[in-house]
């Protein structure tokens, strides 16, 4: 359904998207994962015909996005990161406007608007101005506004930014339902758990480059079976800890991040007692010792040397 080949988008000399290649099958829920400024929104901008690529090729539904922009726009729906709604109008007026913009009218438009209000669980709030809605309600309306013309492909650009956990979970449920209905979705986020929960396949993007691509399991397997053990140590004990690590079986690497020591090991369960013994022997507290199983965070860390959340913040 979507083919992206060697996509390049430059702003002056800065390459915001640098040779990105991926494809998305019809009905697939594809996650584009990366921190702020990684190039996700720019990629969506090119895919949705708003931005012109400086290189590469993008085809959606068989149409080139540059040459066949009008055809592509009929196929796609876009849900921007911002609440792209008229907050001074009611929920229904908003949907009516976006519907008319896409050529709908009369009974068909009214029916579609009612469907979407129900889908967003806002049917009883339809006559309220959007500015009176909670963040979660606005997000849901923002999402369904992108569906008004029943697109085949939906681009969701960080649709859960700035809302609480409960509202987020409702949005994710809604997206999962859309995926089940056969809609092709490209979902950009910097929340790992969302990508893990929703997406069939994930592309990890960093500084404009696609650094990993595959399903969740295959991506995690790229990290290997490495567990991560984190602990806090006084600065004067760091050298001693490094020296000790060199002698322990199963310790494959030691690093430091955000004031914590990180020890990589194929089997955290075996190495953990050894570290605890060393801490006791050196009269150091055990409280701040934690173990983390391999996940997309560790993958990202492995690929870029930085944490996703760290970048996002």
């Amino acid at each position: 359904m979507i083919e992206v080949r060697d996509l390049v988008k430059k702003y002056g000399s800065h390459r915001a998207v640098d040779g990105v290649t991926f494809s998305v099958a019809r009905g697939e829920l594809f996650g584009l994962l990366g921190p702020n400024g990684a190039g996700k929104t720019t990629t969506i901008g090119v895919l949705s015909t708003l931005l012109r690529a400086d290189g590469g090729q993008v085809r959606i539904g068989g149409h080139d996005v540059a040459a066949g922009a009008k055809e592509v726009r009929r196929l796609i729906g876009v849900v921007p990161q911002e609440i792209a709604l008229y907050t001074d109008l009611t929920a229904r007026d908003n949907l009516m406007f976006w519907g008319r913009l896409h050529g709908l009218g009369g009974a068909a438009l009214s029916r579609r608007v009612e469907e979407l209000l129900v889908m967003a669980d806002l049917a009883d709030q339809a006559r309220r101005k959007v500015e009176t809605f909670s963040g979660g309600m606005q997000r849901r309306l923002n999402l369904v506004a992108g569906l008004i013309h029943e697109p085949e492909v939906l681009f969701l650009d960080e649709p859960t930014v700035g809302i609480d956990a409960q509202a987020r979970s409702r949005i994710l449920e809604l997206i999962a339902r859309l995926g089940q209905q056969g809609l092709t979705v490209i979902y950009t986020t910097h929340y790992l758990e969302e990508a893990e929960q929703l997406c069939d396949r994930i592309g990890v993007i960093d500084r404009g480059r696609l650094v990993a691509l595959g399903d969740k399991e295959s991506l995690i397997s790229q990290v290997g079976d490495a567990d991560m053990i984190r602990l806090s140590l006084p600065a004067d004990r760091l050298d001693a800890f490094h020296a000790a690590c060199g002698g322990w079986t199963g310790c494959t690497g030691v690093g430091e991040r955000r004031g914590k020591v990180e020890v990589r090991t194929p089997d955290g369960g075996r190495l953990l007692p050894v570290i605890q013994d060393w801490l006791r022997a050196n009269d150091l507290p055990l409280e701040q010792l934690e173990i983390e199983r391999p996940n997309l965070e560790t993958l990202y860390l492995n690929l870029t040397g930085r944490g996703l959340r760290e970048e996002a913040s």
């Binding site: 708003l50 009008k70 792209a84 896409h102 506004a145």
Partner: peptide
């Protein structure tokens, strides 16, 4: 433009 409703309109047909 800042609210991105303009971009959304640009994505309409025509």
């Amino acid at each position: 433009r800042a609210r991105r409703t303009l971009q959304r309109q640009l994505l309409g047909p025509g």
